[in-house]
């Protein structure tokens, strides 16, 4: 079971400093938020697919294809009822769909998918340790960054234990699929308790192992990973900043907007 999305490739993107990756993905999020016109959003989405291809992150896009498709479809179906536009297309009682709201809905679908895509690119090119390292270089104290990355690290371990626990209880006749929501909630006790106890034991063991290897969160330490900001990093950040500012400028000029909202 692998829930991590990191892909061990050696692209230009992978070699960037983790600080660049963190700030970069934030800038990408910013760009994704700027427009709400479907055509402009489509351009942004296409740009992200190209970035993804360059970073060799497309396998992860493929892995998440259902989620991405679901986001687009749901948002396209639901948004028209919540956003109001001036040109009515269809109405039924108080429900009303306008041309603008439909376009806005498509744009929102693309925006959500682009959001996920930007995140996917980041996760595909950044290891857990690099992320931690990046956070530390950006000023986060080591104990906080360590706790954060360890928590992330434990997710797949607990997910694996959880899967075994489910099988063990199913073998004893636990039926997780039937019953109403309250009955179902009760059935999580046989799953939750062993998982909780496993987690406590596991964390305790891990703490022992860490201490035995000389871990002391308050003490000074050195790093094997030694990311450096290079020319490529400054270039990447400059390009993304320019792109973000340009997008913002366009939007403020009234381009890429179907409805006057975010």
């Amino acid at each position: 079971m692998n829930i991590f999305l990191y892909l061990d490739e050696n692209t230009w993107f992978h070699r960037l400093d983790p600080r660049t990756k963190i700030i970069g993905v934030l800038l990408l999020f910013g760009i994704v938020m700027v427009f709400n016109h479907p055509l402009y959003m489509a351009a942004v989405a296409l740009g992200l697919v190209l970035l993804g291809a360059t970073a060799k992150a497309l396998p992860n896009f493929w892995r998440m294809r259902y989620i991405l498709a679901l986001l687009v479809v749901f948002s396209t179906v639901l948004w028209p009822f919540f956003a109001k536009g001036p040109t009515p297309l269809w109405s039924w009682g108080r429900l009303e769909v306008s041309r603008e709201s439909l376009m806005y809905a498509v744009a929102m679908g693309l925006r959500l998918a682009s959001f996920v895509a930007a995140g996917l690119i980041f996760l595909s090119i950044t290891t857990n340790e690099e992320f931690t390292q990046g956070l530390i270089r950006l000023g986060l104290p080591y104990p906080v960054a360590f706790a954060f990355s360890t928590a992330l690290r434990l997710v797949p371990t607990f997910a694996g234990a959880g899967a075994t626990i489910v099988q063990a209880q199913i073998s004893r006749g636990l039926d997780v699929e039937s019953g109403n929501i309250f009955q179902r909630a009760g059935k999580f006790i046989p799953l939750g308790v062993p998982l909780f106890i496993y987690a406590v034991r596991h964390t305790n063991m891990l703490a022992m192992a860490l201490e035995s290897k000389g871990f002391n969160p308050g003490a000074p330490r050195t790093w094997y990973l030694n990311p450096q900001m290079r020319r490529a990093d400054y270039l990447a950040l400059a390009l993304l900043t320019v792109a973000f500012l340009a997008a913002l400028f366009l939007r403020l000029q009234g381009y890429g907007q179907v409805l006057p909202r975010l």
Binding site: E129, A209, K213
Partner: peptide, 18 residues
């Protein structure tokens, strides 16, 4: 429970870093 890094080399690096 003893292994927690995402790559073999970083796992070994942890002790010497400390």
């Amino acid at each position: 429970a003893q292994l927690f890094s995402t790559s073999v080399e970083l796992e070994v690096a942890f002790g010497p870093e400390n």
